[in-house]
Simulated assay, not measured.
Amino acid sequence: MKATSIVEFVRDTYKTDEFIPLHAPMFDGNEKAYVMETIESSFVSSVGKFVDEFEHKVEAYTGTPKAVATVNGTAALHTALYMAGVQRGDFVITQALTFVATCNALYHMGAEPIFVDISPVSLGICPKAVELFLDEHAEVTETGCIHKKTGRTIKAVVPMHTFGHPVDLDHLVSVCQKWNIVIVEDAAESLGSFYKGKHTGTIGNFGAVSFNGNKIITTGGGGMVLCKSSEIGIRTKHITTTAKIPHPYEFFHDEPGFNYRMPNLNAALGCAQIETIDTFIREKRVLAEKYDELFKGTDLQFVKEPEYAQSNYWLNAIICPNQSVRNEIISETNRMGVMTRPVWKLMNKLPMFKNCLVGDLKYSNWIEGHLINLPSTPKLIITESL
């Protein structure tokens, strides 16, 4: 299939001759009313009713016992890793095919990623690849899972649900239980995605969600930690709010904490957005079905949700037969005003992570050279292009 056919389809779908971004925020509900309410109340920062309300709405939607709002998704992941017990010098197994924020959170904790391959089914971390790496390089001792060559602790596994498609979590949980490793789900892209009926981010020890402007719903900038229990959630909230003991006027902090509080202004936007998330996802799934039909019988393979999951189809993607076809389609579609892009460069190929330990990344390397992301806004509203 030629790039011109893709452009014609996208333009016909969005009914516009203007530039078509990869993803754009949609404001169809109470966003303006709720944001104006915060402005008129003067409670625009970390104090105000919408932060608590947004947390409760996310808890109800995802089924998590406690959700803790943060200033962005990276802060949510950093907090989740901290609460999971990851310490300076620890190894954390993750996928090389991910957005850099996954690894930046580890770097700023003083932890170090180990990169293993992804699954061709989910495009997220492959549980078998995790198991193979551990079988060859690790052992379980009284102090935990240890990397045999260095003696360093392998503390956690961080699966990232790529483009909203859930990882095979049952298999991953089984592997991690065997090796005494915690799971912190990077669910930045997968709000609204379900693994066997359970929301992503709620199956591991912790989950982290993003509300960046290009996500399924947005708070402008923001994130959320999904916690396994209310008790853990209370301490997580405490940590993200400078670990300050409540008092009418005195300042007393009982441990080192983060200032990762989501402003009330952003939470107001989130409260309005999550009211319409079911509509957003329904429309995104319809768009995915249209793409799937378009590419049937062609040399381009549409990336579909795993059979065990229901995906939000955050970013639609196709796999090309070779890198030359990929490059031509990306070049031509962008030249014609329809944004497409390649997948991220593998993390182990970036300068700051080039010396990290790696497993066999055969499929990750192949996908890096063959995948294209396509416009994925369910209905285009020309506001802010992302």
Score class of each variant (00 low, 15 high):
Ile20Asn: 00
Asp12Lys: 09
Tyr249Leu: 10
Pro159Arg: 07
Ile154Ser: 04
Ser331Cys: 10
Gln177Lys: 15
Gly204Met: 04
Ala76Lys: 07
Ile274Asn: 02
Thr241Asp: 11
Met109Ile: 13
Met347Ile: 14
Thr383Asp: 14
Leu134Gly: 01
His78Pro: 00
Glu40Asp: 11
Pro351Ser: 12
Met352Gln: 14
Ala3Gln: 05
Lys237Tyr: 13
Pro120Glu: 11
Pro342Arg: 02
Ala24Ser: 15
Pro166Arg: 07
Ala67Gly: 07
Glu112Arg: 10
Gly221Thr: 14
Cys145Phe: 09
Ile367Cys: 10
Ser42Leu: 05
Gly359Asn: 08
Val175Ile: 13
Thr377Ile: 07
Ala24Leu: 04
Pro166Gln: 11
Asn348Tyr: 14
Gly197Trp: 03
Pro256Gly: 06
Lys349Asp: 15
Asp278Asn: 15
Thr62Ala: 12
Asn316Ser: 12
Thr241Asn: 12
Val209Pro: 02
Glu305Ser: 11
His137Ser: 05
Thr16Asp: 05
Glu328Val: 03
Leu315Gln: 08
Gly337His: 04
Thr377Ala: 04
Thr218Tyr: 03
Gln177Pro: 00
Tyr195Cys: 09
Asp360Pro: 02
Ser42Pro: 00
His161Tyr: 06
Thr70Gln: 04
Lys362Ile: 10
Val209Gln: 03
Tyr363Ser: 05
Asn104Met: 13
Ile318Trp: 03
Asp17Gly: 06
Glu185Ser: 05
Asn365Thr: 02
Ser376Arg: 10
Val68Thr: 09
Gly221Tyr: 09
Thr150Ile: 05
Thr98Leu: 08
Val71Met: 12
Ile367Gly: 06
Pro256Asn: 13
Asn334Glu: 12
Asp17Ile: 08
Thr70Arg: 03
Lys354Val: 03
Asn72His: 11
Asn205Ala: 01
His161Leu: 06
Arg261Pro: 01
Pro159Trp: 08
Gly359Glu: 06
Lys296Gln: 15
Lys198Tyr: 11
Ile183Pro: 04
Ser376Gly: 07
Gly192Ile: 12
Leu123Met: 09
Met224Phe: 11
His165Asp: 14
Asp168Met: 13
Leu315Lys: 08
Pro351Leu: 12
Val35Met: 15
Thr13Asn: 02
Gly73Tyr: 06
Val358Phe: 05
